[in-house]
Amino acid sequence: MSTVIDQAVQARLIASAPQDRAVPAQLRYEPSDPFAVHIAFPPVASLDGADVEWVFARETLACGLIAPTGGGDVHVWPCGPDRTVLEFHAVEGVAMVQIDTSELRRFLARSYALVPAGSEGGHLDVDGDLAALLREA
Rank of each mutant, 00 (worst) to 15 (best):
L27H: 09
R106V: 01
V52E: 06
V94D: 06
L86P: 10
R83Q: 13
V85A: 13
E53W: 00
Q98E: 15
P78F: 04
L104P: 11
A25V: 02
F107M: 08
C63F: 08
R105F: 00
S2Y: 12
I39W: 03
Q7D: 08
V9R: 04
D6W: 09
A62S: 07
R58F: 05
I14E: 14
T101K: 14
A62G: 00
L65D: 15
A67D: 11
S102P: 04
A132D: 13
D129E: 14
G49S: 02
L134Q: 15
G118H: 05
V4Y: 00
S119F: 03
E59A: 13
F107V: 10
L104Y: 12
E136L: 08
D127I: 01
P34D: 04
H123D: 09
W77S: 10
A25H: 06
R58W: 00
T60C: 08
L86T: 00
D6P: 03
A131N: 14
S111I: 11
G71I: 01
G70F: 01
G49L: 00
C79E: 13
E87C: 07
A95W: 00
T84V: 15
I39Q: 03
V44R: 10
V97G: 13
G128R: 12
A90M: 09
V97A: 14
A45E: 05
T84H: 12
E120G: 11
Y29D: 13
R58P: 09
W54M: 13
W77E: 15
G122E: 13
P81K: 05
G121E: 11
D6A: 14
A67C: 08
E120T: 05
T84Q: 07
V85C: 14
V37R: 04
G128K: 11
L114M: 11
Q26H: 09
P78Q: 05
A11C: 15
H38Y: 13
Q10V: 10
V52D: 00
A36C: 12
A17Y: 06
A132I: 02
R12S: 09
A67F: 06
G71D: 13
H75Y: 07
L130P: 06
D100T: 01
G122W: 06
A15I: 02
L13V: 01
A132R: 05
Q98F: 02
S16N: 15
E120N: 07
A95V: 15
A36V: 09
I99A: 09
M96D: 12
P31A: 15
S111A: 15
P42D: 05
Q98H: 10
D129L: 12
S111D: 04
V37N: 04
A132P: 02
G70Q: 01
A95K: 08
S119K: 06
V126N: 09
A67R: 08
L27I: 00
A8P: 04
L13E: 14
P78D: 04
R28Y: 03
F88G: 11
A137F: 12
L86E: 11
D129A: 12
D127V: 07
Y112N: 08
V52K: 04
I66H: 12
A131C: 05
L114N: 04
G71N: 08
M1P: 15
D6G: 06
P68C: 03
Q10P: 00
Y112T: 05
A15F: 01
G49N: 02
P31C: 06
S2V: 14
C79L: 07
F56Q: 04
S2W: 14
L108Y: 04
Y112E: 03
V126I: 09
Y112W: 07
